[in-house]
Design a protein around this nucleic acid. Structure first.
Lengths: 121, 121
DNA sequence: CTGTATCCGATTGGATACTG
DNA sequence: CAGTATCCAATCGGATACAG
């Protein structure tokens, strides 16, 4: 079956898919959190540690974002048997699937910064 | 020079780069607008047409987002000699550099949707 | 048509204090 | 430590009217 050149169903589908991604991974913090957990998967990343090291995020936002990410199976929450209680957050296998995306964000940002410098802005 | 395992400068640099990208391309609309202009580069995309076809965006937001994108040289604005005046928006060469990123957003969204369906959510 | 200006409700998100 | 609850300021963003 043939599709019209300028309004193919594929275009709408792509748009829909993009909106899905932006809904799940969008906002100011989610991708930064995933990046954090991916690059520090060899460590015990507790709530407190994350809040300290992801500069600028408040407890309220970190709670909310981690909850969202957990609901989408991108992050795993595991309560430790410590006193006082600590909670370990880890990236899930599915969460890793955002790795390429994150890497591209990093790459694009680096290139953009260079462009700004060299274009004298 | 050697870097520590768990807190390499590279990690901070990556974080910084990500924040840069999220600042320039982040938010609800910018990537959708770039996607729109990339996929319809063979057409005359006017303000009105864009507002009609990018579902849900208001004039106010479209104005603001286009201005931001233009300031970052991702989008080009060109006033046409028509009566009444129309304005054509096009993607710039630099704007195209976000193409891979956008494609990954699309791909991830499609995969995510499939995952939701097959995991019975 | 392409915006801008204004009003105003809704949402975001920080600060602080508090609970288990 | 890991959050929750509350207050409150700032911003977001739609609707409408208007200007060039």
């Amino acid at each position: 079956m043939k599709t019209l050149k300028n309004d193919p169903p594929e275009c709408s589908l792509n748009l829909l898919a993009m909106r899905d991604t932006l809904e799940v991974l969008g906002g100011k913090w989610k991708l930064l959190i995933l990046h954090y957990l991916i690059t520090r998967d060899d460590q015990i990343n507790t709530f407190k540690k994350m809040q300290r090291e992801i500069t600028g995020i408040s407890a309220k936002m970190l709670t909310k974002e981690l909850k969202d990410l957990e609901e989408n199976h991108l992050v795993h929450r595991e309560q430790q048997n410590t006193k006082p209680i600590t909670v370990r957050y880890t990236i899930t296998e599915y969460g890793r699937s955002a790795g390429d995306l994150i890497q591209q964000l990093v790459d694009w940002g680096k290139t953009h910064r260079i462009k700004l410098l060299t274009s004298g802005q």
